[in-house]
Amino acid sequence: GNIFIKNLHPDIDNKALYDTFSVFGDILSSKIATDENGKSKGFGFVHFEEEGAAKEAIDALNGMLLNGQEIYVAP
């Protein structure tokens, strides 16, 4: 299952995104959108192997604080 994450703190990188979401299941890919200079655009995507893991991550993390910013997590 794919999920979309927005309002990410600029310091959150691909590894931090992966580490945050990997507790919910096996991740096939995770990516933070960046500009041409490699600076985070504040949103990203995680693709879980299983749909159930994606739903669990959405339920658990939507509205949670990550590096002091409330993140939005949705399908």
Rank of each mutant, 00 (worst) to 15 (best):
I58T: 12
F45I: 00
E51D: 11
V46M: 03
I32Y: 01
V23W: 05
L66K: 06
A53Y: 11
L61C: 10
K41R: 14
I3M: 08
E50I: 10
K15G: 07
E49T: 13
K15W: 07
I32S: 04
T34P: 10
L61G: 04
L61K: 05
A54R: 06
Y18R: 13
S22V: 09
G42R: 15
N67R: 09
T34A: 13
A16D: 06
N2R: 01
G25E: 01
N67A: 13
E51H: 07
D19P: 02
L65K: 08
K6D: 00
K6Q: 02
I32C: 15
T20F: 05
A53T: 12
E51R: 13
Q69C: 15
A74F: 03
N67P: 02
I12Y: 04
F4T: 02
A60H: 05
D26T: 08
Q69K: 14
A16N: 07
L66F: 13
D59C: 09
N67K: 11
L8E: 01
K6Y: 02
D11S: 11
D13S: 07
L17P: 01
K31S: 03
I12F: 05
T20D: 03
G63V: 04
F24Y: 05
D26E: 12
N7Y: 08
D35E: 11
F45R: 00
F21M: 14
N2A: 01
I32D: 00
V46D: 00
K41Y: 06
A74T: 08
F48L: 07
L17Q: 04
D35C: 14
M64R: 06
N67W: 05
E70F: 07
I32R: 05
F43W: 02
L65Q: 11
K6L: 01
Y72V: 07
G42N: 15
F43I: 03
F4L: 02
E56F: 04
D26R: 07
E49R: 09
D19S: 15
L66Q: 06
T34D: 09
K31Q: 03
E51L: 11
E70Y: 11
G63H: 09
K15H: 08
L17S: 02
L28W: 08
I32F: 03
N7K: 14
S22F: 09
K41E: 04
Y18K: 10
E56S: 07
G52H: 12
G52N: 12
G42H: 14
I32N: 03
I12C: 05
F43D: 00
P75N: 14
F43M: 06
A57I: 08
F48T: 00
K31A: 04
I71G: 00
V73I: 15
P75Q: 15
G68T: 08
L61Q: 04
G63N: 09
G52P: 10
A16T: 14
D11P: 03
G1A: 07
F4I: 02
M64G: 08
S29P: 01
N7L: 07
G52R: 12
A57E: 02
F4H: 02
G63F: 05
L65S: 08
I3H: 02
D26A: 12
Q69L: 15
H47V: 01
L28S: 08
G44Q: 00
D35Q: 10
G1S: 07
A53P: 11
A33Y: 01
F45C: 02
A60E: 13
F4Y: 14
A16V: 09
I71H: 02
E36V: 14
E50Y: 11
T20K: 05
E51T: 11
F21H: 03
L65E: 13
I58V: 14
M64Q: 10
Y72C: 06
N14I: 06
E36N: 15
K55N: 11
V73G: 04
E50K: 14
G25S: 06
A60S: 11
M64F: 09
L17T: 05
N67Q: 12
L8T: 04
F43C: 03
S22L: 15
D19E: 15
A57T: 10
K41P: 02
N37F: 14
D11H: 15
S40L: 08
N62R: 14
V73C: 11
I71L: 15
N62C: 12
I5M: 11
L65R: 11
A74G: 15
G42P: 08
G42C: 15
A53F: 12
G44L: 00
I27S: 00
F48C: 03
E36P: 12
S29G: 02
F43S: 03
S30P: 04
L28A: 05
T20R: 04
K31T: 04
A33V: 12
I27G: 02
